[in-house]
C-alpha cells in the first residue's frame, strides 16, 4: 500500500471499483425514500441487522425441543406457530408455518418453485441453491436424484414428499433424531440440526463419537 503517495494521474480510472448499475439503483432509491421521509437511514440499518441476526440456530432450537419433548412435537405438527410461540419466540408477523416430520418411512423436502419462499425467521436467508432455477425445476420432478446430489441416498421403499412453499405458507422439516443421541442435552442436540436438514436435503448430523 502506498498510502501517502498522491494518486498517479496517468492511471486509468478504476471503473469496476465503482458502483454497479443495480448498486446505483439501490443507493438512489434508498436516498430518495429517506429524503421523502418514508424511512430513515437508521430504519435501514436496523432492518439489515435484524436480517443478519436470523440464523438456522433458531430453527435448530425448535427441532431439538421437538426431539426431547413429545408433547411439544405434537403441538408443533398440529400448529407450528402456536408451538413456537411457547418457546418465547415472537411469531406475530409470520405467515402460516407447517412443520413436517421425517420418519423411517417418509422423507420430506421443501422447495419454492415460483420464487424463494422460506421460513426465514427460523433459518435466516435461503442459500443460493434454494433460489436457483435448477433446484426449483428439478426437486419436484426427480427428488431422489436431487437428494443424491446433496449426498442423501434414500431406500427405494422410502416415501418422498416434496412441499412447494408460497408466500403465505412455509414449511419446516423436522429431521429424524440421529441414533446414539439418547444422553445428549437439548443444546447439544441443537448442534446436530443443520440448516439443510431442516430444508430436507440432508439428514441431521451424527454426533461425534
Amino acid at each position: 500500500m502506498r498510502e501517502h503517495d498522491a494518486p498517479d494521474p496517468h492511471l486509468p480510472l478504476e471503473e469496476d471499483a465503482g458502483l454497479t448499475y443495480y448498486e446505483q439503483r439501490v443507493e438512489a432509491i434508498q436516498a430518495l425514500l429517506i429524503e421523502k421521509g418514508l424511512l430513515s437511514a437508521d430504519d435501514v440499518r436496523r432492518a439489515v441487522e435484524d436480517m443478519e441476526a436470523r440464523s438456522p440456530a433458531v430453527g435448530a432450537r425448535v427441532i431439538a425441543r421437538a426431539w426431547v419433548d413429545p408433547h411439544f412435537k405434537r403441538h408443533l405438527l398440529a400448529d407450528a406457530k402456536a408451538a413456537i410461540a411457547t418457546l418465547g419466540i415472537n411469531v406475530d408477523t409470520w405467515s402460516t408455518l407447517v412443520a413436517v416430520e421425517n420418519t423411517p418411512a417418509v422423507h420430506n423436502v421443501v422447495v419454492c418453485t415460483l420464487c424463494s419462499c422460506y421460513p426465514r425467521s427460523l433459518l435466516g436467508v435461503p442459500p443460493d441453491w434454494y433460489k436457483s432455477l435448477n433446484y426449483r425445476a428439478r426437486v419436484v420432478q426427480e427428488p431422489r436424484t436431487v437428494l443424491k446430489e446433496f449426498g442423501l441416498e434414500l431406500a427405494s421403499d422410502m416415501e418422498v414428499r416434496v412441499y412447494d412453499s408460497t408466500a403465505d405458507m412455509r414449511y419446516l422439516v423436522i429431521p429424524q433424531r440421529p441414533a446414539g443421541t439418547e444422553g445428549l442435552s437439548e443444546a447439544a442436540l441443537a448442534e446436530l440440526v443443520s440448516r439443510d436438514s431442516m430444508i430436507g436435503v440432508t439428514r441431521a448430523r451424527e454426533p461425534s463419537p
Binding site: Q30, D128, N134, E149
Partner: peptide, 23 residues
Amino acid sequence: PINKTEHALSFWEKRTDALLVLL
C-alpha cells in the same frame, strides 16, 4: 445440475432486502 456454491450476501443485497422489509 444444481450449483451448490453459496455466497455471503453483499451489502447492496442486504440493503435491497431491508428496503422491501421496510416498504
